[in-house]
Amino acid sequence: MSNFEELVAFAEELIYGKSGNYLSDLQRTILFTTLKGSRKTYEQIAKECGYSPKYVKQDIAPKLWQLFSQILEQKITKSNVKAILEHQMRHQPPMVESPDPVTLSPVSSAAPKIYEKGNILLVDDQPENLKLLSDLLEEQGYEVQQAINGVVALQAIAIACPDVILLDINMPELDGYTVCQKLKANPPTQDIPVIFISAFDQAWDKVKAFSVGGSDYITKPFKTVEVLARVENQLKVRRLQLQLQEKNRQLQQALHKLEKITGTTP
C-alpha cells in the first residue's frame, strides 16, 4: 500500500470513528488525487469520473473539506489536508478499527449507499435533455449525476454506483441497449434499476429494452409526473433489494459464527 493509500485509509478511520460512515467513492477520489499532489482541477476530476463539474466543485468538494474540518477541529482545505493528515497519523492511533478494509478498487464491494432521496445517473447525448431532467430531479431533492454518452456513463458507474439510471437509447459509440447489457453482465452493477428514456415508441423497442435488463421505459416527450413516479417506484424496489441483501449477509454471518462454535455445518 502506498503512502497516499495509507493516508486515505487513515482518513476513513477518523471519519468512521466520529460518524460511523465512510467517504463516498467520489469524495475518496478527490482526496486521493489531492494527496498525490496532482494538479488536476475539480473540473478535470468531474470530467474523468463522469460527473457535472458544478456538482463536484460546488457540492462534493466543499462538503469534503468541511467534514474534515469538523472531524479534526481545524480549518482543512485542499492545500493543507495532506500535511495535517500526515501529522495526525504520526501522533494519533486509529480511533476505531474499521470493520471492512478500505480499498481503491474501481467498483466498491460495499453495498451502494442510499441517499435520503436517491442518487440518479442521467445518460443522454443531448445536453438540453440532461439539463431538463437534472433540474426536475434536483428540485425534488434527488442527487443527480450526468453522463453525456455510454462510455462516460460506464466510467462513472465504475467509480460510484447510482441507485437508479435514466438511460437514453439512441446514442453514438454505445447505445443504451449495449450499456444496459454491460451493466447486467457485471455482478456489482447488475441490480441497478435502468429506466430507458427514448423517442422510440414501437412495441419492439420496448420489448428489446426489457429483454436486455431494463426495469422500466418512458417515451419522449415525457411527462414530469410520470418520470417522478417511475423513478420513485424503482427506488423503492432498490431499497427493498438492499434490505434483503443485508438480511442475507447478517444471516450468513450468524451461520458462520454458529459453525465455528459448534464445529458443524448447520
Rank of each mutant, 00 (worst) to 15 (best):
D168N: 11
Y115R: 09
S105Y: 06
I165Y: 11
I159D: 01
G141D: 04
V151P: 00
C49H: 01
K75Y: 13
D135G: 09
E143W: 06
T103Q: 07
M95K: 12
G50H: 03
L64S: 01
S134D: 11
I157M: 04
Q58P: 02
A110C: 09
W65A: 05
H87I: 12
P94N: 04
A111Q: 15
P53R: 00
L167N: 14
D100T: 15
Q88K: 09
A61N: 01
L130T: 15
A156T: 04
L122W: 04
K57W: 01
L72G: 03
Y55G: 06
K113V: 15
E43K: 13
R90K: 10
L166D: 02
G50W: 01
P99C: 03
A160D: 15
Q88W: 07
T77R: 00
E128G: 10
G141V: 04
D100I: 15
Y115N: 08
L136E: 04
P127D: 04
V96T: 14
P106A: 10
P93Y: 07
G141P: 08
L133P: 09
A110M: 13
L64W: 01
S69D: 01
K82N: 07
C49P: 00
A153I: 02
Y115P: 04
N170R: 11
V102E: 01
K54H: 14
K63A: 11
V96P: 00
G118H: 02
L72K: 03
L137A: 08
L154M: 12
E128S: 14
V123T: 12
T103Y: 07
L133N: 09
V102W: 01
G50D: 01
A158F: 00
D59T: 08
L136A: 00
D125W: 03
L121F: 06
A46D: 05
V151E: 10
L121R: 07
E48L: 12
Q140K: 08
K131M: 11
A83F: 04
P127I: 07
Q70E: 11
E73T: 11
K57D: 13
D100R: 09
P99A: 02
A46C: 11
L67D: 12
C161I: 14
C161S: 14
V151R: 02
Q66N: 15
E138W: 03
W65N: 03
I60E: 10
H87C: 10
I114M: 15
Q145A: 13
L67G: 11
Y51H: 07
V152R: 01
A160H: 12
I165Q: 11
V96L: 10
D100V: 15
Y142Q: 05
D168Y: 06
Y115F: 15
E43T: 14
K131A: 12
Y115H: 13
P94G: 09
N170S: 10
P99Y: 06
Q140C: 02
I148N: 08
N80V: 10
A153D: 02
P62Y: 11
Q155G: 06
N119S: 12
R90H: 07
I169L: 14
C161H: 09
L166R: 00
Q146D: 06
M89Y: 11
S105Q: 14
E86H: 03
H87A: 15
L104P: 03
